[in-house]
Design a protein around this nucleic acid. Sequence first.
DNA 1: CGCGATTTGTGCACGTCTTCACAAGCGCCT
DNA 2: AGGCGCTTGTGAAGACGTGCACAAATCGCG
Lengths: 256, 256
Amino acid sequence: MSQHRHPGAPKRAGAVPALPDLPEATVARLPEYLRALHNLAESGHETVSSEGLASAAGVNSAKLRKDLSHLGSYGTRGVGYDVALLVDHIEYVLGLTQGRAVALVGVGNLGHALAGYDGFASRGFRIAALFDADPSRVGEVINGLIVQHVDDLARVAAEELISIGLIATPASAAQPVADQLVAVGVTSILNFAPCVLSVPEGVDVRKVDLAIELQILSFHEHRKASLTALPATGGSALTALPGGLAATDTQEAIGT
Amino acid sequence: MSQHRHPGAPKRAGAVPALPDLPEATVARLPEYLRALHNLAESGHETVSSEGLASAAGVNSAKLRKDLSHLGSYGTRGVGYDVALLVDHIEYVLGLTQGRAVALVGVGNLGHALAGYDGFASRGFRIAALFDADPSRVGEVINGLIVQHVDDLARVAAEELISIGLIATPASAAQPVADQLVAVGVTSILNFAPCVLSVPEGVDVRKVDLAIELQILSFHEHRKASLTALPATGGSALTALPGGLAATDTQEAIGT
DNA sequence: CGCGATTTGTGCACGTCTTCACAAGCGCCT
DNA sequence: AGGCGCTTGTGAAGACGTGCACAAATCGCG
């Protein structure tokens, strides 16, 4: 073992390994494992146990093992997982080895921040083009890229293969932008606008809504407050917990 | 029917209604319903059917009905749901009627955008204070708020009840900041830093990682590409689909 | 060479979420 | 008043995800 072969080309490089279709929940956790593995690699670890990696990624170790088992056997019993090997394989499975180009539409408040976010480049994504519908914004240079008019999307997409589209426009503009992205062949969209997008079959849309996250937290705050406010619901004030108000039965950290 | 009573105080205002503990999946969808309802209200709808609301929120109508049934019966058979009434009730359940104050720590690239994001205020959240550890940033005015040093967090929290903490720092600073937030009594944290936070029981943490979302999309791109690249896996090239390459069996839009 | 310590991979049971399908309820029209 | 069409609310079944617990496999050591 040791010496990982050629990074980025696990298994046999001839035929495409025909990606096993992983459970969606597993896919959602792989990036987290990957980040933890990168940290471990930087701190000099060659191997890591499922227990160690699980705690670094904030999940149950059994869950981690089951997730990784879906990728095939990349661990050694009695030893653990080869960090470098696992990094290579997860990156391959996630399709990160091909330096995907993303197009960002909408350079307003949020879009500006996304354009300057360095967490993308460090993980295999390259912001290839910026667009906006506002003519007064066109021409502006952000992070070395020139903002272009959204109507030029087709032209730019013809020059460069866009892998993923980011929508950071106001809600009212999001659907037309999505249509334009789909029209130029984009089949994956990350939507920051607070609205639902309708797209043809075969196009994947993920949504990130900051206000929704806050509202979910707000619910839990509300619930926690209502619980501590009236501990005597349903009688039995005797069961008042000795630990005081810290003993709410909330799930610790919330998952995905 | 008709005339919703006092907005913001559903059921009897005397005893706290002791929030039913909703399924987590339902809670995550309520904000989406709420947004859709606000849109409907603005466009003049008084009532809406489960079918109509479901399509506006991008979910199955049966799922929506079951979700709403967990809140109690707020619909009328043969008619639908009273839009204004439902808005009031969902806002109450989510705890949005109390104008929650959020503290934002880290006014770098992303934090800057969050501080200026108007989608928070429009949904019941008020950014009450900005913090940063970098002395050169302290004193800067963003959106009418002065950036304060993170060590002043305790003092500020004493003046104002902070309901939710936002962490938009680099990963290395996130854990200490989380500890400080917890120390001043914050029990809900929204973490934008790419790392796992460890917090005491009773504290809720949600994580938003933009790079993770991209990586999930990347996986699906990779899978779609590998599917269209070799349609003859497992023999039977005869089953080539008449519709050409558009007939991948991918799930349409990805859920939560 | 064999044994014990260690850790992976997984069968199984359990809980949660989703979806279907339909009875119950409501309003409207005749 | 009665019946009809429409819509909600929900039981039940199935799909999915999770976590336990243990067998299988590997390494190191005597």
